[in-house]
């Protein structure tokens, strides 16, 4: 079996890439996709720690189900927002979306 550090490291890379994308991107949907990448990275790290643990804790399944639920809810939210705003805004530039309140 491969060392645990390999899986933790790739989880860290995914989370760092997602965070960097969320910071550096201006498009609303790309930011949400970046958050999904963060979820994927956290799931990899969590699975690694669980696979190398000796206990039979059910908390892992509860936690991973929670992560999946939050990721799915976020995707549904982005789809609803996209359908609602399509045609009302020319693009999903976050700089322009902040002016919608005016």
């Amino acid at each position: 079996m491969l060392p645990l550090f390999f899986f933790v490291a790739i989880g860290v890379v995914f989370v760092a890439l997602g965070l960097a994308g969320a910071v550096a991107s201006r498009h609303f949907i790309v930011v949400i996709l970046a958050v999904e990448v963060i979820f994927a990275g956290s799931i990899i790290a969590l699975s690694g720690y669980y696979a190398y643990s000796t206990g039979n804790s059910g908390d892992f399944f509860v936690t991973i189900l929670s992560i999946w639920a939050v990721a799915s809810a976020e995707a549904i939210a982005i789809i609803a927002f996209y359908i609602c705003m399509k045609g009302r805004v020319p693009d999903f530039d976050l700089k322009k979306l902040t002016r919608l309140r005016d």
């Binding site: 760092a16 965070l19 960097a20 910071v23 550096a24 991107s25 201006r26 498009h27 693009d91």
Partner: peptide
């Protein structure tokens, strides 16, 4: 429009990583 600032993406990724 250019939605992602590539140098900023690289810099933030390196710092956070």
């Amino acid at each position: 429009f250019r939605h992602t600032n590539a140098p900023m993406l690289l810099a933030v990724f390196l710092i956070l990583g």
